[in-house]
Design a protein around this nucleic acid. Structure first.
Length: 478
RNA sequence: GGGGCAGUAGGGUAGCCUGGUCCAUCCUAGAGCGUUUGGGACGCUUUGACGGCGGUUCGAAUCCGCCCUGCCCCA
């Protein structure tokens, strides 16, 4: 029927849209023949590269990058009781070297605490060594039993940034958690992704943490996606792994630790949050191609136009923009759709009319068409990029704002969630009431101590028992 | 954790119940030639498939078993 809109499903069918855009825009190929493992296409990997470059820049302000091994010996992995309980059903084990059974089984890291902390115990001697702030970006393996999804629920997480810090005191570690939340917010702000931050309930915290603060994004269908977590580990791990330092008085002290993580779910959020019926919309900051030049070559001015476009491309590249000139033998319209699908934020059209007028036609992926002066094109594009970024951000903020609402009963909660919203309720923080909230509305408690400009975090009566309660985010999660 | 649907060429589908043939079919798919080119051009030629393993059978995309993978729904 509407065969001119391509076959990308509309955004209302978010699940269909997401599955389809991954291969149409050449981000991930799901056809790798092992469950939960997917292949990055070059274009998807280029997006990943620019996103992770930003992440590295942020972390390198304060952390140092490092790299630990993939394999963890069983006895180290089994040291911390809570941690084991949290991960034992999800661990892949290496049991053989060739045909020889191994004396000591080796775990493929599901996360790297038990790989890193024995080394931290060796590295840490004195209070003068503190704080230690290292991170790595690695793949991790989890034998997920729930349905796997590309970028969202994987058996091999390919892009796991995990930071592990060590501090003298609990308070310093807490301050580090706050700092890391700030980094996370800044990171997502750069991707124009609004987030809600909240403290996970105790039963949902990281295995072996004092507390977990999570960062969630609200997807187009109203489901929430956890896209970052910060954990205060207290001294749980320093006890088991013997991470101690001598204080100024020469006395041995247990260290306090934090860890936090961000994965390719950040890419899932990026492509989900900003897309439309035509495809991806990438913020200029992370778009592998920030602007595409489409020369409109007709008749005998073919050479003229091509020369002008080549010059334009060279000028823009020299100015540091990531541009691509599309000289393929296709009709201009077909090229427009092709680049729109891939989310390129700006299209520059250059034809005989524009050359004569000293202009370049600039079409924003967010929908607006403007004519830029060729003479001042660098400034013009810089301005346009800022406008595009703002438009993308504003749209995402509006989405997030409109998908949050306060409710004061389980019926209202159910209604809100069924409408695809994330709700704010009051909850007394008792497990029983928490379970009741989750069961009655088929939902998950995301957390308390909510931080979001769109959430009123003041106290109120628990919607189950009526006792004093705290503002709490409740949603349906990925 | 439970249930369901599905896997046929790059993508989308038919065929399966009721096993057999000569050509599967459509496309924004691949290769090629020509005409085209300011919002998805067209003509012609051509390439290419039954998820895997095993079983039944003279003969399997089709029936049976096991496995793998994907997707949807519910908890």
């Amino acid at each position: 029927m509407d065969d001119d809109s391509g076959t990308l499903p509309p955004r209302q069918d978010f699940s269909g849209w997401f599955n389809d855009i991954l291969w149409r825009a050449e981000i991930m190929d799901v056809r790798y023949p092992v469950k939960g493992l997917y292949v990055w296409y070059p274009y998807g990997f280029a997006i990943r590269k620019f996103v992770y470059n930003r992440l590295r820049e942020l972390l390198d302000r304060d952390h140092q990058e490092t790299l630990f091994p993939l394999l963890i010996p069983e006895q180290e992995f089994m040291k911390e009781a809570e941690h084991i309980k949290g991960f034992e059903d999800e661990v892949y084990w290496v049991t053989h070297g060739g045909t020889t059974p191994l004396d000591v089984k080796l775990a493929l890291r599901p996360t790297s605490e038990t790989a890193i902390y024995p080394m931290y115990a060796l590295w840490l001697r004195s209070h003068a060594d503190l704080p230690m702030k290292y991170y790595q970006i690695v793949n991790t393996f989890r034998y997920e039993t729930k349905q796997t999804r590309p970028l969202i629920r994987l058996r091999e997480i390919t892009s796991f940034m995990e930071s592990h810090t060590v501090h003298a005191t609990w308070d310093e570690a807490e301050a580090q958690c706050e700092y890391e939340l700030g980094l996370t917010k800044e990171f997502y702000d750069g991707l124009c992704i609004p987030v809600t931050i909240s403290k996970r309930p105790d039963w949902d915290k990281f295995p072996g943490a004092d507390y977990t603060i999570a960062v969630d994004a609200i997807m187009p269908n109203g489901k929430t996606l956890q896209i970052g977590t910060v954990h205060h580990l207290g001294t749980h791990f320093s006890k088991t792994f013997g991470i101690q330092y001598e204080d100024k008085d020469g006395k041995a002290q247990l260290a306090n630790q934090t860890c936090y993580g961000i994965s390719e779910r950040s890419i899932a959020a990026l492509i989900s949050m900003h897309g439309d019926d035509k495809g991806l919309i990438l913020p200029p900051a992370v778009a592998p191609v920030q602007a595409v030049i489409v020369p409109i070559t007709i008749g005998k001015r073919h050479e003229d136009v091509l020369a002008a476009a080549t010059k334009l491309e060279a000028d823009l590249k020299a100015a540091g923009f990531r541009v691509k000139m599309d000289t393929r033998d296709m009709r201009p319209g077909a090229k427009y759709y092709w680049w729109e699908l891939r989310g390129v934020p700006l299209r520059l059209e250059l034809g005989p009319r524009d050359i004569d007028a000293g202009k370049v036609m600039a079409v924003k992926r967010t929908g607006e068409k403007t004519s830029l002066e060729r003479a001042t094109i660098i400034d013009g594009i810089t301005t346009v990029f800022a406008e595009i970024t703002e438009a993308i951000r504003a749209r995402a903020e509006e989405h997030t704002k409109s998908h949050l609402c306060a409710v004061d009963s389980t019926d209202a909660l159910n209604t809100a969630l069924n409408e695809g919203k994330v709700a704010v309720v009051h909850w007394c923080r008792e497990r029983g009431c928490g379970d009741a909230i989750e069961e009655k509305a088929n939902s998950s408690i995301l957390g308390t101590e909510v931080r979001s400009p769109y959430v009123d975090a003041s106290d109120g009566k628990c919607i189950i028992c009526g006792k004093p309660g705290r503002a709490t985010l409740v949603g349906r999660t990925y």
